Computed example of a mutant assay.
Amino acid sequence: MAAHVKKKQALLPAIVILFWFAQYVYIPYQTPYLLSVQVSEVFLGSILGAYGITQMLLRIPVGVMADSVGKHKYFILSGTLAASIASLIRFLIPNGYGFLAANLLSGMASSMWISFMVMYTGFFPEEDQQKATGRIILCNNLGILSGFLLSSLLYKYFGMSILCLLSISAGAVGTILTFLLKEEKGKGTFSLSSFASLKICLHKRLILFSLLALIQQGVQMSTAMSFTAQILKMRGGSSFIIGLSSIIYMISAVATSAVSSSKRAVRLGARVLVPIVFLALAAYCILVPITPFIPLLLALQLLPGMATGILFSNLTSEAMKGIPLKVKSTAMGFYQAVYALGMTLFPMFTGKFIAEFSYLTAYFLLALSALIGTAASFCYYYFQKNMSK
C-alpha cells in the first residue's frame, strides 16, 4: 500500500473522531437542559427532529455532487466547520430557538458524512468493504463516546456552556487537520447532467436497507439519544447517572462496532445479525418505560449500543453491496437521506405522543416499528436464501 494512502488512513479516522465528538458532546444533556429552560416536549421533539431535516434535504444533492466532482476533501471541510459553528450558536443563544437553529446546522454538517465514508472505504477492495465500514463507524462511535465521557464529568460543574466550547474546539481542530488531507485530482465540475446518477436510487436492495436504517436511526434518536435521559431523571437519576447511561450506551456501540468488523461477525453475516439486533432494540423500547430501577435502566443501554455498533454497520454495508463506485456517493446520499427522515420524524412524533399520552405509549410504538424491522429483515433473508437454492 502506498505511503500516502496509509497516511490518509490514519489522518481521516482522527478527523472522524473529532467531528463526531463535536457533534455529540452536548447530546446526553440536551433534553434535560432544554426541559429545564422551559422548552415543551412538543417543541423539544421539533428541536431534536431538526437535526434530521437538513440531512434529509441535503444528503442526496451532496452525494450527487461528490460523485460528479470526485473530490471529498471540501465536503469534509465544510462538515467540520459547520459542526463548530453550530455549537457557537448554542453557546451564544442558549435557548430553544438557538438549539433549533444549531441543530439544523449540525444536520448540514452530518450530511457531509457521505464523503467521510466514501473516501475511507475507497481505500479498501470490494471484499473488505464490511470491515472498512465497521472501522469507520468504530471511529464515529469513539468520537461520540469520548464526548459523552467528558460531558458526564463536566456538565454538573460547568453546565451546557462548557460542552458547547468543547464542541467548538473539536470542530475547529478537525477543520485544520482536514486541510492536511491530500486527494487525487477530481473528475471535473458539477453540472445538472450529474443528476442522471439518481437512477441508482431505484435499486431495490438499497431502498430496503435504507428503510431499515430509517427505523433503527429513528428509534435510537428518540430513545437512547434523547427521551431515555428524561426517564432516568424521572426515576431520580442525577446528572452523573444520565451521563453514565450515555457512556454505557457508547461503550457498547464501540465494542460492538469492533465486533462487527471482525472475521467471526463477517462469517456469521447480516442474515443472522440484522433480525436479532432489531429484536433486541424492540425489547429495549418495551422495557425502558416499565423499569423502575436505575441500575437496570443503565444495563438496558447496552442494547441500543449494540444496535449502533452491529446493526447500523451491517445495514450500511448491505445497502452498498453491488453499487458501482462511480455512483457510490449518490447511493450513500440516498441511504443517509432516508434514515435522516427517521431521525426527523420519530423524535417529533415521540415528543407529541409523550405530551398527549405517556412515555409508555410512545416507547411501545417505537418497539412496534423495531418489530417491523425484525420481520422485514427476516423475510428478506429467508426468501433470498430460498431463491438461491
Rank of each mutant, 00 (worst) to 15 (best):
G174T: 12
E127V: 03
L154V: 14
G96F: 01
L150S: 14
E127N: 06
L149H: 00
G147D: 02
Y157W: 09
S115Q: 12
F148A: 14
Y155D: 03
A109F: 09
S146D: 04
G96R: 01
L165V: 05
S151R: 08
A172R: 04
I168L: 15
C164M: 03
I93L: 12
L100F: 08
F116K: 04
T121F: 00
G98R: 00
K131C: 02
S111K: 10
R135K: 09
T121V: 07
L92V: 11
A109V: 08
V173R: 08
I85C: 12
E127I: 15
M160L: 11
A172C: 05
L163C: 13
L163S: 11
L165D: 07
F116D: 13
Q130A: 12
A172T: 15
N140F: 14
S110I: 10
E127R: 11
G171F: 04
I93R: 05
A102Y: 05
S146G: 12
N103E: 12
L92G: 03
P125K: 04
I114Y: 12
A132R: 05
G159E: 00
L145W: 08
E127D: 15
Y120E: 08
S115F: 01
K131Q: 13
G122F: 14
I144L: 02
S115D: 13
S167R: 09
I85F: 14
A132H: 03
I168N: 10
M108Y: 08
C164K: 00
P94L: 00
S146T: 10
I137Q: 06
S167H: 06
S87V: 00
